[in-house]
Nucleic acid binder design. Structure first.
Length: 287
DNA sequence: AACCTCTTCAACCGCTGCGGC
DNA sequence: CGCCGCAGCGGTTGAAGAGGT
């Protein structure tokens, strides 16, 4: 009485050997939060970074645990819709091919689009200092005490970014996570973290040794007010800047590091080589 | 013990992309 | 080029269990 589809689902989500169910570790939680903030509700993509977890499991865990946890900080009015539902119709939520290789290529494309969008946004701004209007969003990241996912990931996740900020970007990058709003928020976050938080800025290459970097990078404190939008995307960029920024750069402003990263390939010289991409760095996650 | 509410998670549903014909 | 079947994705549902009254 079962169709092939149902059987496949049963196998992939439940019966398949090697899958781990329940008992998400703190590390896994943080990684999921980060990836959700970065990728939106692309559970399959997120699951590819957690080989022992199924996308369904991650999705369920997000919806039942993490989303609530992150909203526990005060919520930003997402209400029931919450982070995930708010991002249920993402422009950036393009269908992700099944294979990890394809997904990686897609992500790399997204990264390139992010660069372009960020570049354009920075160009359009008078300067690259954190934008005041980021505070408007800060109610999501700060005042609203919304989690990184709800802030950067949901309300402004790749998923949800399509509606508002996207229009400010080029059509090609319109749907991407890095709308100007997000960018502003990210920059704001970097700027704010700049001082006493030397280890976590994008300009601090040594800070993120590895995926465990994610533990550091994911200084996400749940349930409290400390959760802010920037960390997640920031950490994402950390990975990418890591290989290209020297330790001496630690004293630079983080923004400078971003710029150097951003414009390094402005002439089409993309950092697809080893250590040259977010993806490559991201893949450093140790499991 | 009965009832109700809430939470969890496996399964279902609709959709999209891809490959074969 | 269009059709068809399949794989896979993300959103949603509903049964089962837990907990409270």
């Amino acid at each position: 009485m079962r169709c092939s589809k149902s059987c496949r689902l049963r196998w992939t989500n439940y019966l398949r050997p090697g899958i781990k169910r329940g008992n998400f570790t703190d590390q896994e939680e943080k990684l999921i939060v980060h990836l959700q903030a970065l990728l939106g509700n692309r559970w399959a993509a997120i699951a590819s970074y957690l080989p022992e977890r199924t996308d369904n499991d991650i999705k369920n865990y997000w919806n039942t645990h993490l989303k609530r946890k992150l909203q526990g900080g005060g919520g930003d009015g997402d209400g029931g819709g919450g982070a995930a539902s708010a991002s249920s119709k993402p422009a950036a939520q393009r269908p992700v091919s099944s294979s990890k290789g394809q997904w990686e290529r897609r992500l790399q494309t997204d990264i390139d689009m992010a660069r372009r969008a960020l570049r354009e946004a920075l160009t359009s701004l008078d300067d690259v200092k954190p934008q005041p209007d980021a505070d408007a969003d800060a109610d999501a990241g700060g005042g609203g005490a919304t989690g990184p996912a709800a802030g950067a990931g949901a309300a402004h996740s790749p998923a949800a970014s399509s509606s508002s900020g996207a229009s400010q970007c080029s059509p090609s990058a319109a749907g991407y996570v890095l709308t100007t709003e997000n960018i502003s928020r990210m920059l704001d976050g970097w700027a704010r973290k700049g001082g006493g938080h030397a280890g976590s800025g994008p300009a601090t290459p040594g800070a993120t040794e590895s995926a465990s970097g994610s533990s550091e990078a994911s200084e996400v404190s749940y349930g409290g007010t400390a959760v802010s939008a920037p960390p997640a995307p920031a950490s994402a960029f950390e990975y990418e800047t890591k290989p290209t920024v020297t330790a001496a750069a630690a004293d630079e402003t983080q923004l400078s590091a971003i710029e150097s990263w951003l414009f390094a390939d402005v002439d089409g010289i993309e950092h697809h080589g080893p250590g040259g991409s977010l993806l490559d760095a991201s893949m450093d996650y140790a499991f």
